[in-house]
């Protein structure tokens, strides 16, 4: 055959998966890479910090309201004389675990609902999308407050409360991607060769629908951390577990006298969520082929 100019060997050798190309694209986005590094540090601090800095965040270690740097306490103490650095390090665990777990839960529910609705259409879609809309019109903070107030403020329940109110966006994105991709000819081709519905949904359509879902779930981690902070600020948190929002909430009356007790954990939340957003943005650019050529 004459029309098949064979590519040079090296080009065939480096025939890379589209995901590998996306990774390279991500690496070119310096802000996103920097944010990813910051995020790594925060995660490492959350995992190993308590072993390196074992001070109990609930112990009264020094006089109350001693400003940062005094008496060897790097970030000072709060209104009960508790070490703020210890609170920050121990609180990172809760914030990040809740953020990841709630995002995972909402992605799991959202992808399942969206995939079924977009793939089967018809009545399945009608019912699932009405349910999605029901959850969408609920006032999210109020609804999760009700769940936590009713069933107790344990960490799993807080995670559940955040996850159950935030899966709708993922469901809608997944559904719209499925609606688009299910009509493409390669899906028809797989159907013609006898692929089962499960294979079509999860092996053929889902991998092609993933990019926007990945971006959305990265952003979801950030908003789940914010959500948790909001709930614990309102006191709806496990009082035996320290978290960033809880530190802000318990010190809020002293914001004028000792502003650092509120601003320091606030900055921690801000930096974490900003880093997650920048990473999400970088993923969006890397995974969206329309922006590749910019």
């Amino acid at each position: 055959m004459t029309d098949t100019p064979i590519l040079p060997k090296e080009e065939i050798q480096k025939a890379r998966h589209p995901m590998a190309e996306a990774t390279e694209m991500f690496m070119k986005n310096h802000a996103a890479v920097a944010a990813a590094v910051v995020l790594m540090l925060i995660v490492l601090a959350a995992i190993f910090g308590p072993y390196i800095y074992p001070t109990d965040p609930f112990d009264m270690v020094w006089a109350p309201f001693s400003p940062p740097g005094e008496a060897g306490f790097l970030l000072g103490t709060d209104y009960l004389g508790r070490d703020l650095l210890a609170a920050l390090i121990h609180g990172a665990r809760v914030s990040i675990v809740i953020g990841l777990a709630a995002a995972f839960m909402s992605v799991f529910i959202g992808v399942t609902v969206g995939a079924l609705a977009g793939f089967y259409r018809g009545y399945v879609e009608e019912i699932l999308m009405r349910i999605t809309e029901f959850f969408q019109v609920l006032p999210t903070l109020l609804f999760s407050m009700v769940i936590v107030a009713l069933f107790g403020a344990s960490l799993p329940m807080i995670t559940f409360a955040i996850g159950i109110v935030s899966w709708t966006a993922v469901a809608r994105i997944t559904r719209s991607e499925f609606l688009r991709i299910r009509e493409l000819e390669y899906v028809t081709a797989s159907r013609a060769s006898g692929a089962s519905n499960g294979k079509l949904m999860f092996r053929i359509i889902l991998p092609n629908a993933l990019p926007p879902i990945i971006v959305q779930s990265a952003l979801m981690v950030g908003s789940a951390i914010l959500f948790e902070a909001g709930l614990s600020f309102l006191g709806l948190t496990d009082p035996n577990v320290v978290s960033w929002g809880q530190v802000i909430g318990s010190n809020r009356q002293y914001i004028l006298d000792a502003s650092y007790t509120v601003t320091i954990p606030g900055m921690a939340i801000f930096i974490t969520v900003l880093a997650i957003s920048l990473v999400g943005d970088g993923l969006n650019d890397a995974l969206n082929p329309k922006l590749r050529q910019r």
Partner: peptide, 8 residues
């Protein structure tokens, strides 16, 4: 559109 773009 007839070939899955993510598959060799």
């Amino acid at each position: 559109s007839s070939l899955n773009p993510r598959v060799r």
